[in-house]
């Protein structure tokens, strides 16, 4: 599968990574190279194979643990805001969002 410029533009938008127009072709070529190498997987027969669930399921010998419904966290606003580039009072500030 070779990626075209428009597809790269679309996935860059989805991923919120600004790719300058001038870099789109080179990026497309690079990603296409990786994808065409990945496509050797088409030769692996996976008929009737049950996919793993996110790579993590009972086949990994693990079981999901549950937590009791207890409030034992929160109330740490200073820690939550400590690294904010724009800590605005008790809030995180971002450019205005228009609904």
């Amino acid at each position: 599968m070779s990626l075209d410029k428009a597809t790269v533009r679309k996935i860059a938008t989805l991923a919120r990574i600004d790719v300058p127009e001038a870099d789109l072709d080179a990026t497309a070529a690079r990603l296409s190279g990786i994808l065409s190498w990945i496509e050797q997987l088409n030769e692996v027969n996976t008929d009737g194979v049950q996919p793993m669930s996110g790579g993590l399921d009972e086949s990994m010998g693990l079981k999901l643990g549950w937590r009791a419904d207890v409030v034992n966290d929160g109330g740490i606003r200073d820690k939550v805001l400590a690294n904010a580039p724009d800590a605005n009072g008790a809030f995180f500030g971002v450019p205005k969002v228009v609904e």
Binding site: V80, D86, N88, G89, A90, F91, F92, G93, V94, P95, K96, V97, E99
Partner: peptide
């Protein structure tokens, strides 16, 4: 929650 009316050019985020 995004609060839009606290600041002229910013939205304020409350998690």
């Amino acid at each position: 929650k995004s609060v839009h009316d606290l600041h002229a050019t910013k939205s304020m985020i409350d998690l």
